[in-house]
Lab assay of single mutants.
Amino acid sequence: AVSDRLIGRKSVVMEAISPQNSGLVKVDGETWRATSGTVLDVGEEVSVKAIEGVKLVVEKLE
């Protein structure tokens, strides 16, 4: 599936994300709604860990 190619990809937070609120990330020039178990600020680099419905699950790059 097209979405499977996103797992493991680097992306950049475009709208802040917290455990309570989804935000936005940009992956390969496309904007996606995303969630995370931690707070992520605009501009942080993250990695796509999973896809749940139409949202990406991301975490901060170490």
Rank of each mutant, 00 (worst) to 15 (best):
A1I: 12
V2W: 13
V2E: 10
S3T: 12
D4M: 10
R5E: 08
R5P: 07
R5Q: 09
L6T: 02
L6F: 06
I7D: 03
I7Y: 00
I7M: 06
I7F: 02
I7H: 04
I7L: 09
G8F: 00
R9L: 10
R9G: 05
K10T: 12
K10G: 05
S11M: 13
M14D: 04
M14E: 07
M14S: 07
M14N: 04
E15W: 00
E15H: 06
A16W: 10
A16S: 09
A16Y: 08
I17C: 04
I17F: 02
I17H: 01
S18R: 06
S18N: 08
S18K: 06
S18I: 08
S18L: 06
S18A: 06
Q20Y: 10
Q20L: 11
N21H: 14
N21K: 15
N21W: 09
N21S: 13
G23N: 01
G23L: 00
V25D: 03
V25Y: 00
V25N: 01
V25Q: 02
K26A: 11
K26P: 02
K26N: 11
V27P: 01
V27Y: 03
D28Y: 04
D28C: 15
D28R: 03
D28H: 05
G29A: 05
G29Y: 04
G29R: 03
E30G: 05
E30V: 09
E30P: 07
T31I: 15
T31F: 14
T31R: 08
W32R: 09
W32A: 09
W32L: 10
A34T: 05
A34Q: 05
A34F: 00
T35A: 07
T35Q: 06
T35Y: 04
G37E: 14
G37H: 14
G37F: 11
T38M: 13
T38W: 09
V39M: 11
V39Q: 11
V39G: 07
V39T: 12
V39K: 11
L40I: 12
D41N: 13
D41A: 13
D41P: 09
V42I: 10
V42T: 05
V42M: 06
G43R: 01
G43P: 02
G43Y: 04
G43W: 04
E44L: 08
E44W: 09
E45S: 09
E45R: 09
E45K: 08
V46F: 01
V46M: 01
S47Y: 15
S47T: 15
S47P: 01
S47A: 11
S47R: 15
V48N: 01
K49D: 03
K49P: 01
K49G: 04
K49Y: 05
A50G: 11
A50M: 07
A50P: 01
A50N: 07
I51S: 04
I51D: 03
I51H: 05
E52M: 12
E52R: 10
E52K: 09
G53Y: 01
G53S: 04
V54H: 14
V54F: 13
K55V: 15
K55D: 09
K55I: 15
L56I: 05
L56V: 07
L56G: 03
V57N: 04
V58G: 02
V58I: 02
K60W: 05
K60C: 04
L61S: 09
L61P: 07
E62H: 12
E62W: 09
E62D: 12
